[in-house]
C-alpha cells in the first residue's frame, strides 16, 4: 500500500494544479495547466517539431560526455599512476575543479563561435572533472599486492594495464562517469541557450521569449526525462560491468 502513496501524491499535485488553473487562481501565462503542457508535448512530438531539439541535445551531450570520459580516464591514469603527475599536475586540477563550469561557455563563444564545436567543448570542460578526479583516485589507490602479482607474473605493461590497472580503477571511473553525464546534460542546456543554434536549451529559450509557456514546460519535462533515462541506462551498464563486485552491505 505504502508504495502507492507516492504516486497518489503526484496525481493529487497534478489534479490540484489543474484545478487552480481552471479556476483562474494563477496566471496561466506563467503556470500553464498540466493538460496544456501535455498537449504541447504530444503535439510537438506528433508534428515532429520536438524531435530535432531532442536529437541535437542528445548528440551534444553524448559527444561531450564520451570525449570527457576519454580525456578524463587517460589524463586520470597518467596523473594517478605516476608520482610526477600526483606532485605536479594534480594541484592545478584541484584549483580548476571548483570553477563554475558555465563560466567557460562565454569563453567558448568568443574563441570558437556559435556552433556545435563550441557546445561540445563547453560540455567537455564542464563534465570532465568528476570522471577525471575519480580516475586519478581510482588509479592511485590500486591494491599494492596486485602490483606485486603483476611483477611476479612478469606481465607486460600493456597487459598489466588491461588486466589489473583499468579493472581496478573501473568502479570509481564509472561512479565519476555517472556524475559526468548529469553535468553533460546541464552544460548542454547552458551552451545551447547561449549558442541558440538548436537543441532543447535553445527550445526553452525561444519558448520563454515568446511566452509559449506550455512548450516551455514541455521542454523542461523532456530535459528531466533525458536525465532520468541516461541515468537509468548507465545504472544498467554499471551493474553489468561491475557484476564481479559482491553485493554492497545494506544497512
Amino acid at each position: 500500500m505504502r508504495r502507492w502513496y507516492g504516486l497518489m501524491f503526484i496525481a493529487a499535485l497534478v489534479a490540484l494544479a489543474e484545478l487552480v488553473c481552471a479556476r483562474g487562481l494563477i496566471w496561466s501565462a506563467i503556470f500553464p495547466a498540466p493538460h496544456a503542457t501535455l498537449a504541447a508535448l504530444v503535439s510537438g512530438l506528433a508534428a515532429g517539431d520536438l524531435w530535432a531539439p531532442i536529437a541535437a541535445t542528445l548528440a551534444h551531450m553524448l559527444a561531450g560526455w564520451i570525449s570527457a570520459c576519454a580525456l578524463g580516464v587517460v589524463l586520470g591514469a597518467l596523473v594517478g599512476m605516476t608520482a610526477f603527475g600526483r606532485d605536479y599536475i594534480a594541484p592545478t586540477l584541484e584549483f580548476l575543479r571548483p570553477l563554475p563550469a558555465a563560466a567557460i561557455a562565454p569563453i567558448g563563444l568568443l574563441l570558437i563561435g556559435r556552433n556545435d564545436a563550441m557546445i561540445v567543448a563547453v560540455i567537455v570542460f564542464g563534465a570532465v572533472w568528476p570522471v577525471l578526479l575519480a580516475s586519478v583516485h581510482g588509479f592511485a589507490s590500486i591494491e599494492p599486492r596486485l602490483k606485486e602479482v603483476s611483477r611476479t607474473l612478469q606481465l607486460t605493461p600493456v597487459r598489466a594495464l588491461w588486466a589489473i590497472w583499468i579493472p581496478s580503477a573501473l568502479p570509481e571511473i564509472i561512479a565519476g562517469a555517472r556524475i559526468s553525464i548529469a553535468l553533460a546534460l546541464i552544460m548542454a542546456v547552458v551552451a545551447e541557450i547561449l549558442a541558440s543554434t538548436g537543441g532543447l536549451g535553445d527550445w526553452l529559450n525561444l519558448a520563454e521569449r515568446s511566452y509559449r509557456t506550455p512548450e516551455l514546460y514541455a521542454g523542461v519535462l523532456l530535459v528531466g526525462l533525458l536525465g532520468v533515462l541516461t541515468n537509468l541506462a548507465l545504472e544498467r551498464v554499471e551493474a553489468y560491468l561491475l557484476r564481479w563486485k559482491p553485493p554492497a552491505a545494506t544497512f
Partner: peptide, 17 residues
Amino acid sequence: VAIVFQDYNRALLPWRT
C-alpha cells in the same frame, strides 16, 4: 619462481573468475 601470498583476498583479481 612463483610466489603465493598469505592474503589471497588481495592477491586475486576480484573482477576475474
